[in-house]
């Protein structure tokens, strides 16, 4: 087990007993990942914030169900997946992506970056939720295929090929917008 897993496992052990500092630290470590997953799925930053909040509440209320503290990250992502899919079922409406919304999720202030983000986010939004989540997880820094497999509940040996197929579908959706992406 690497140092990340060891640290998180220790924090999870404290969090189970209600240690607020451990809970707060676990949120700080993982909120970037969870928020990234959620905003890639729902786009709207207010909804993403509310869902991220709900995901952590659900996770810490169920933390005693987590048998292996070292697997906190994929377990948390699986909760995120369930809550986002529940949200989609509840909403059941076609999502539209506005430039304003995309601008909110970025970190680079320049207009070209916002435009690039909008194009890719728009293509992501047209993928099915499973492909979208798979791409977000597979390309997230430091997320292993084993963790993707645990989160998505698919065999680890299939993660690479599923991610590649999802990536190909995303590329197809971006066909004809190459010049906009590179401008």
């Amino acid at each position: 087990m690497d140092s990340y897993s060891n640290d998180v496992a220790t924090l999870v052990t404290y969090a189970r007993d209600g240690d607020e500092q451990a809970i707060s630290r676990l949120i700080t470590i993982h909120k970037g990942l969870i928020y990234t997953i959620v905003i890639r799925m729902v786009t709207n930053s207010d909804t993403a914030r509310d869902l991220t909040h709900d995901i952590f509440i659900r996770a810490f209320r169920k933390i005693r169900d987590l048998r292996t503290p070292g697997l906190f990250r994929p377990w948390l992502c699986a909760i995120a997946r369930r809550i986002v899919l529940d949200h989609f079922r509840a909403e059941k409406r076609k999502r539209t992506v506005s430039l304003e919304e995309i601008g909110e999720i970025g970190v680079e202030p320049d207009h070209a970056a916002v435009r690039r983000r909008m194009i890719i986010q728009d293509a992501l939004a047209r993928l099915n939720p499973r492909d979208r989540l798979l791409l977000v997880l597979a390309y997230y820094q430091g997320f292993t295929y084993a963790e993707v497999a645990l989160t998505m509940k698919i065999p680890e040996s299939n993660v690479r090929i599923y991610a590649q197929r999802a990536r190909d579908r995303l590329r197809k959706l971006l066909k004809g917008r190459e010049h906009e992406l590179l401008s």
Partner: peptide
């Protein structure tokens, strides 16, 4: 895709 989107403070 690899972009880590800055999360708001929710702790």
């Amino acid at each position: 895709l690899a972009l880590d989107i800055h999360a708001p403070k929710i702790e």
